[in-house]
Nucleic acid binder design. Structure first.
Length: 469
RNA sequence: GGCCCCUUGGUCAAGCGGUCUAAGACACCGCCCUUUCACGGCGGUAACAGGAGUUCGAGUCUCCUAGGGGUCACCA
């Protein structure tokens, strides 16, 4: 699921829950040509993972079912006929091909195409005859040629357009399915929908829906059009262009809670300075007033930061549980979990980072450069490191116990006795054990993690390299 | 192109006529802490798209311009 869709669902869920309402899941699948296998399941999965539970829906039922539009197919035509009777809609026999051709012609001439109401003038008899003959048809809305169509949006206020700008949209397609434009009106009314939150792209077509509500004399829902989530200033986020879906983010190691929290803040703010929210807290804080009118760019960096914050706040046990698969992948699954959690947790921004961070523990690059032993701040260079390791490695080998505490006590005492900076002693030890300049954790943690044999093997190897320089 | 919507730092954004020499967060930079890197702490750079008007007073209201987005389907 696209993160923009998830955010829309989130806001709708929050608003419903905040007002003790029901959050209803309805599958809009009136375009049979665009059916995608598995898409519906992904909707369920994403919503569940995000914690947005629904009160009524295809899988759990409810008193306003069915909740899948294709299963409601037969409900729409009677309403459309009613509209025809009222003169608010009419049968149209123009084929898609003809219209496409005329549209292309108009476009070629630089004109905008609008259906000319050709079939509106067909006599009732002719319509009956062609219908009886089984000729394919659609039903179009008969939009007045003058006057205004309008509606009120909770965020944007009063929106008004000239009816003359509006096209006679198709209500019932040739295959008997309703268009989204029609189905949503019928369903929202018959299913008792009070609030509609949806993307900006519907803002300009909403006045048309209201003409329908008025024709039926139905009460209109509250409309809340949400601004687009952008990738950059001029492009919206889109799956098509490779932008990450919710599922992609989770797979990459973002926590669902962090994604939801971040998403809630893209286009909405609580009015105070809080930015960390559980779903319950969000429910409490959410308001329509906090919704933004301008589009917002999705900031991966901020999401990353927020995810890191969530990870740091995890109980160590939970962290290990979540990072487990990546630790296993890197081949360090059997190492001391408590130490791993301690050194990794504050450094993990997204779970998948873990893999690369610990790889050296499983297998180090033994061909590392001697220059790694040089570090200005620690006052070391290969010569100094050689001297230190020559003396300290045998002593480490002689340690009766190879625990973090024992290692810590020995190394710290050693540095103190020799009057050297901790860094000067620890630098060569860490480099020899890791083969890399930057590691999560320091020499002591790494030594404990590797275990006596491997740690000493690496230290000896380092000594060897230094002796041969 | 017609119509609709939007416009505060690089990003998310607070601000709803005076308390704005404009908050907070991310990012960036610097310092401190430190066993490398992170974490943490402290500090810093950085914005009202432009122009008219209304008003004693405009980031806040109006109009115009510019820029951006959306929409003009038998897609949703």
């Amino acid at each position: 699921m696209h993160v923009g869709n998830l955010r829309t669902a989130l806001y709708a869920w929050l608003w419903a829950k905040k007002n003790n309402g029901s959050f209803i899941l309805r599958i809009e699948d009136t375009d049979q040509a665009r059916f995608v296998e598995g898409a519906e399941d992904m909707v369920y999965k994403t919503l569940r993972t995000a914690g947005l539970t629904w009160d009524e829906g295809p899988d759990i039922g409810g008193e306003y079912g069915p909740y899948v539009q294709s299963e409601r197919k037969d409900m729409y035509l009677p309403y459309a006929r009613q509209l025809v009777e009222m003169g608010k809609a009419y049968y149209c026999f123009c084929t898609k091909e003809e219209l496409d051709e005329r549209r292309a012609e108009a476009e070629a001439k630089g004109e905008s195409f609008k259906y000319d109401k050709h079939c509106l003038s067909l006599s009732k008899e002719e319509v009956e005859r062609r219908l009886a003959a089984g000729e394919p048809y659609v039903i179009r809305q008969n939009v007045p040629t003058s006057g205004k169509a309008d509606f009120d949006d909770a965020i944007f206020g009063h929106i008004e357009v000239d009816c003359a700008e509006l096209d006679d949209m198709i209500l019932i397609k040739a295959d008997g399915m309703p268009t989204y434009n029609f189905a949503n009106v019928i369903d929202d009314h018959t299913m008792g929908i009070t609030h509609v939150m949806r993307g900006m792209e519907y803002l300009s077509s909403t006045p048309k829906y209201n003409l329908l509500y008025d024709a039926f004399g139905w009460e209109k829902p509250v409309y809340v059009h949400l601004t687009t989530i952008m990738r950059d200033a001029t492009h919206k986020l889109s799956k098509r262009d490779g932008d990450a879906t919710f599922e992609d983010l989770v797979t990459a190691g973002y926590l669902p809670e962090a994604i939801v929290n971040y998403l809630s803040l893209v286009g909405w703010n609580p009015g105070d300075e809080r930015e960390f929210f559980t779903l319950d807290e969000l429910k409490e804080a959410f308001s329509l007033e906090g919704l933004s009118k301008s589009p917002a760019i999705f900031d991966h960096q901020k999401l990353r930061w927020m995810n890191a914050e969530y990870i740091r706040r995890l109980a160590p046990e939970r962290y290990i549980e979540l990072a487990g698969p990546y630790l296993d992948e890197a081949g360090v699954g059997s190492m001391d979990k408590a130490i791993l959690a301690r050194i990794l947790q504050p450094r993990t921004e997204i779970l998948s980072d873990v893999r690369d961070m610990v790889r050296f523990l499983a297998r180090m690059d033994e061909g590392y450069e001697l220059e790694l032993f040089t570090n200005k701040k620690s006052k070391t260079n290969p010569e100094i490191c050689l001297g230190i390791l020559e003396d300290v490695v045998p002593r480490l080998a002689a340690l009766p116990e190879w625990t973090e505490t024992a290692l810590h006590d020995f190394l710290m005492n050693y540095a103190a006795e020799k009057g050297m900076k901790n860094g000067t002693l620890l630098w060569p030890v860490r480099i020899a054990m890791s083969g890399q300049a930057v590691t999560p954790g320091g020499a002591i943690e790494i030594a404990a993690l590797l275990g006596r044999d491997e740690a000493l093997r690496r230290l000896e190897l380092g000594l060897e390299k230094l002796r041969n320089m």
